[in-house]
């Protein structure tokens, strides 16, 4: 089955990351790099790290009149999607097991892909 893993950052996580010195940040990135390498065979080519939330633009089409263009992510909140990966796995338990060892941001949503 195909799943999309959505990586979600929190305000606290951003603060922690900002408070790290260069060495700590390198080591954090290295951990993520290692995790990606370990799971390479399960990761399809689709996926990306997104630019931070302040770069987001949302267009609402259900306003009844003209589409409404606003600054920021679609849900204004403390948790924002910061990246996604598509993975090919046998079942949800494999996805949960894979996500449990994710060394980056503190929340991950697992969604099966339709079809």
């Amino acid at each position: 089955m195909k799943y999309v893993l959505m990586f979600i950052e929190t305000e606290q996580f951003e603060k922690d990351l900002a408070a790290m010195d260069a060495d700590e940040r390198d080591s954090a990135f290295e951990k993520v790099g290692r995790w990606l390498a370990e799971h390479q065979d399960k990761i399809t080519q689709r996926g990306a790290k997104l630019q931070p939330a302040h770069t987001a633009t949302t267009v609402r089409l259900d306003t009844g009149s003209e589409p409404l263009v606003t600054d920021g992510p679609f849900v204004e909140g403390k948790e924002v999607i910061s990246g996604f990966l598509e993975v090919e796995l046998a079942d949800l338990d494999e996805a949960i097991a894979m996500v449990k060892s994710w060394p980056g941001c503190p929340v991950v949503e697992i969604r099966p892909v339709e079809g």
Partner: peptide, 14 residues
Amino acid sequence: ADAGIPYRIPCGED
């Protein structure tokens, strides 16, 4: 069915 919840006994560490 849709999320692929498996029909099996979970493995060791889980």
